[in-house]
Nucleic acid binder design. Structure first.
Length: 453
RNA sequence: GGGGAUGUGGUGCAGUUGGUUAGCAUGCCGGUCUGUCACACCGGUGGCCGCGAGUUCGAGUCUCGUCGUCCCCGCCA
């Protein structure tokens, strides 16, 4: 009785419209009465009395077969209907070999919910692909391509699985402010905004605030939110705003614990995503997700420099790897360990921020990067939680400590040892799907030249 | 910030050593078809070859400038 009309679903006293998801029609019997909504992907007109349409509601696609016998004069409305218009269709589910998919809806009633103009500014078919620039200018149209939509489904489930994993390990999700009185880390490359009579800065990272939460006594925290970098970077893996996933865990006494946490979390999300999306990824991208084997290889900066040099790539001592160096290291671990991931460890103090904890050897920090398929996706570290040492480290790196007084105060009255990392989900997805630009995995990319749509 | 590419109908591309009317695919418009499924078939529309200057009898093609876009490096996630 509840579903007899397939129209309304009564829940307590509220009434919800009961559209059926096309994806879920697969589970219904032939002859079932159905009501679906969606975009018209194609119309195949076979004359005045028979027309076929492909309807896409975002969950899946199905053929809607329109026969004059069943639809009457309403079929004439389809003579002028344009592709991309939105329809509501009632009909009968029909399992038949006449349709390649084996399923169709025989339409008995239809309503045009939205009529689309013709002549789209970009091509959203699977056959032709418009340039990235044009597709981003018309992002809402671009997303109608199931292949593009899939990227953001995976993005969404990556975050969902991550939350699931973090909550199960007693991390608390926080939302820190993105407006700050002083720059959050280096002081450079931050966006300035007007804040009443003052200047404010957009956060480049929730770093300081997640450490504040640790000082506040949480066992661990994480945040998934936007960060802003005023870097004039013109590459396929940088944007000026991106969603950052940041984790900070208390009572961590070695940087190794942080790396273990991260690799186990990633293995969890990767196998979750494989379970959810392997079929669609195979169909639309012709790829499989590689579930990483644990532990990821760990390679110190010193070792890495030797490896990179053996690939004929220059690198200076006490400096970071160049992006060519990262790519070479990625190739190396693939060849030697058959791993897509590698932790690059023991970064020199000279290239790390003041709050990373130093090793016994003061030139080395207890920090790491995570490289995935030759691209840096994470920076992490054990943090310096001892107030006096932190202050002295800050003095070494910064001209004065005035700007970070609030931050230093976090550690003044006791703070557990802790560590954490930040990661770019968009970079993970870009590499996972083999996309050639991070903008593909960014819903509305912002870069030095793009501020719209 | 430094370097390198690129710009041709709505979209994606081709265009020879400079040569006359700039092609192809797709889209779009009109028509035919009761089982299509990348529907098919018939007909049609659509381009100041980014912009400006120069070389030349002649420029989509060569040169310079300019604007847009993309990529690489640096910075990072």
């Amino acid at each position: 009785m509840l579903f007899s009309q397939h129209r309304f679903f009564y829940f307590k006293t509220e009434v919800y419209f009961m559209r059926q998801r096309i994806k879920e029609l697969q589970g219904l019997k032939s002859e079932a009465q159905v009501c679906i909504c969606g975009f018209i992907k194609t119309v195949r007109n076979k004359g005045k009395n028979l027309k076929f349409m492909i309807i896409d509601d975002g969950s899946s696609q199905i053929q809607a077969t329109c026969l004059r016998n069943l639809l009457g004069e309403k079929i004439d409305a389809l003579d002028k209907i344009s592709v991309n218009s939105v329809l509501k269709i009632s009909g009968t589910l029909n399992r038949t070999d006449l349709s390649k998919s084996g399923t169709e809806v025989l339409v008995t009633d239809l309503e045009v919910l939205s009529s689309a103009h013709t002549g789209l500014p970009i091509d959203i078919s699977e056959e032709l692909e418009s340039s990235l620039e044009k597709r981003l200018n018309w992002r809402h149209l671009d997303l109608r391509n199931p292949k593009k939509k899939l990227i953001f489904r995976i993005f969404s489930d990556f975050l969902k699985l991550s939350r699931e994993y973090f909550y199960a390990r007693h991390l608390t999700e926080i939302s820190s402010s993105k407006l700050m009185a002083a720059a959050s880390e280096s002081g450079a490359q931050v966006f300035q905004v007007n804040y009443f009579e003052r200047k404010a800065f957009l956060a480049q990272s929730p770093q300081f605030y997640k450490q504040m939460a640790i000082a506040g006594g949480f066992e661990g925290v994480f945040e998934i939110g936007p960060v802003f970098r005023a870097e004039p970077s013109f590459t396929s893996r940088h944007t000026t705003e991106f969603t950052s996933l940041d984790v900070e865990i208390a009572y961590v006494e070695t940087v190794e614990e942080v790396m273990c946490f991260e690799e186990q979390w990633l293995a969890f999300t990767f196998s979750g995503l494989k379970e959810l999306y392997s079929k669609q990824l195979e169909e639309l991208y012709g790829i499989q997700i590689n579930i990483p084997e644990l532990p990821f290889p760990r390679i110190s900066m010193t070792q890495a420099q030797g490896i990179v040099k053996s690939y004929g790539i220059e690198c200076l001592e006490n400096s970071d790897l160049s992006s060519d160096g990262e790519k070479a290291l990625g190739r190396y671990v693939k060849e030697v360990f058959n791993s897509d991931f590698v932790f690059l460890t023991d970064f020199p103090w000279s290239v790390r921020p003041f709050y990373h904890m130093r090793s016994e050897n003061k030139q080395i920090t207890k920090s790491f990067d995570l490289i995935y398929c030759g691209t840096e996706i994470t920076t992490g570290a054990q943090r310096e939680h001892r107030y006096d040492i932190l202050c002295s480290q800050a003095s070494e790196k910064l001209p004065d400590l005035k700007g970070i007084e609030d931050y230093l105060n976090f550690f003044k009255y006791g703070c557990p040892p802790h560590g954490g990392f930040g990661l770019s989900p968009a970079r993970v997805i870009t590499c996972m799907l083999g996309l050639d630009n991070i903008r593909e995995a960014t819903l509305l990319p912002r870069d030095p030249k793009r501020l719209t749509p």
